[in-house]
Amino acid sequence: MDGYQTRIRYFDGHSRDALIREHEVPFPDGRLIVSRTDTCGIITHCNQAFVEMSGYPERELIGQPHSILRHPDMPRAAFQDLWETVQAGRKWHGHVKNLRKDGSCYWVLATVIPNVRHGRIAGYTSVRRKPARSRIHESIALYARLREAENP
């Protein structure tokens, strides 16, 4: 299999090794990828589109941190901004390059919203949809600059 091994470093300090391939899997038309996590970002629910696009069977997703999809091309600052926004009770959205189990990738337009129940945050819902190709190109350039700033 083509590709290379790399160590992905997360904004909270931990890291893992992953296979990275150049191949991009297109987002399916008309679908939404939906998942829910607890307040610590552990996946508690995912839909069939999530399973198909991530390449993981559902049993390997439930109970795992959502960062299992983290692609090394994503700047750590993006996820730091995501967590700071949703923990403050606000909605976050952005373009995200996700990593599949087989090392290939897929781009999404992600929106994450806190699930407020009885006045407190009970977890988070993340919904990903098909992004515009023009916005992906803008994001590639922006994230390259951010990664450079993070790893001078």
Binding site: L32, H93, T111, I113, N115, T125, S126
Partner: peptide, 11 residues
């Protein structure tokens, strides 16, 4: 949950 999901689409 359905309402949360629709809220994400309203962006």
């Amino acid at each position: 949950f359905m309402i949360d999901l629709m809220d994400t689409l309203d962006t």
